[in-house]
Amino acid sequence: MSNHEIVQVKNLVKVYPGGTRAVSGIDFTVIQGEFFGFLGPNGAGKTTTIKILSALLKKTSGEAVVAGYHVDRDPREVRRRIGFAMQEVGLDDLATGWDFLVLQGLLYGLSRREARRRAAELLDLVELAPVAKRKIGTYSGGMRRRIDLVAALMHSPALLFLDEPTTGLDPQSRLAIWEHLEQLNEQGVTIFLTTQMMEEADRLCQRIAIIDQSRIVAEGSPQELKAKVGGDMIRITIASTDERAGKALMDKAEALVKELSYVSGVSSRDGNLIIGVKDGSSGAPDLMRVFHDNKIPVTHLSVASPSLDDVFLKYTGRKIRSEEASGDEAGQMLRPWLGLKRR
């Protein structure tokens, strides 16, 4: 194993009793320090994979090595080195945030003193110190996610697994979690996250694997994946005094642009020039220079990139489900009846 590969998965298969194939022979690696994402719709196999990697679930076949240990041979060594914030936020509603974190630290082998120091530090980090002595059952959705996140960080793991960390959160809480995650990654924590949100994968992940119907269908950085769909589109509006002069300018511009090596196509539409380029961020300034040198007056320029939505569509032929995952609906409906919500 290379020292840099903190997760190595080879031909991983999981078939549940009953015959459901949740994971059908996937391969991937996660590099130390990386922010890696599994992007896919509900039921694609994301949670199953992450549970196998954290030794919560037994694989059917294949190989999974996490932080240098085989998940089924040394599950405890694996668990010692990872943090895992689950999708079904497993919180102890009757415990205070403080007690919950300290116990978590003790169970991961910290001394009581260390556990207290670390709990105080992490509560500060996610701005939960003022509610530390309140019962978790009284926390809001965003607070629950944050305490769950820092619970996974109590033992300072080198690798953090996050299963849909912001599903069901309002935009403000989501942003707060994203900022915490970026900060952690900058501090050197390798993060492996699953999500069904394009925006989340795009913003956070350096590399993603798109998983659909239990298989990985594409892998790469968000930029690479988007580049595979096609390049960026630059739309340019040219100033002109009258229609004829405008037409002449447009023709001149089109002829000029066609000669450029990085332009993949050009067309005029509604008085605008639509130019296909490999990379809009470097293409746009160069195009401006060319137009300026040739005295073509540009009044407006915009760059549009393909989104991960387009990537997903290209590889699966479908759009990813845009609604938020609602979790186990039947279970959620029962909770108030059972008096479990507040316990």
């Binding site: 919560l56 668990r79 689950m86 079904e88 936020v89 497993g90 919180l91 102890d92 169970l107 479990l340």
Partner: peptide
């Protein structure tokens, strides 16, 4: 209650 809240699974995840 611990099983349904997911806390039981969280405990199982600890290296204990």
């Amino acid at each position: 209650t611990d099983i349904l809240s997911g806390y039981f699974e969280k405990l199982l995840l600890a290296p204990i």
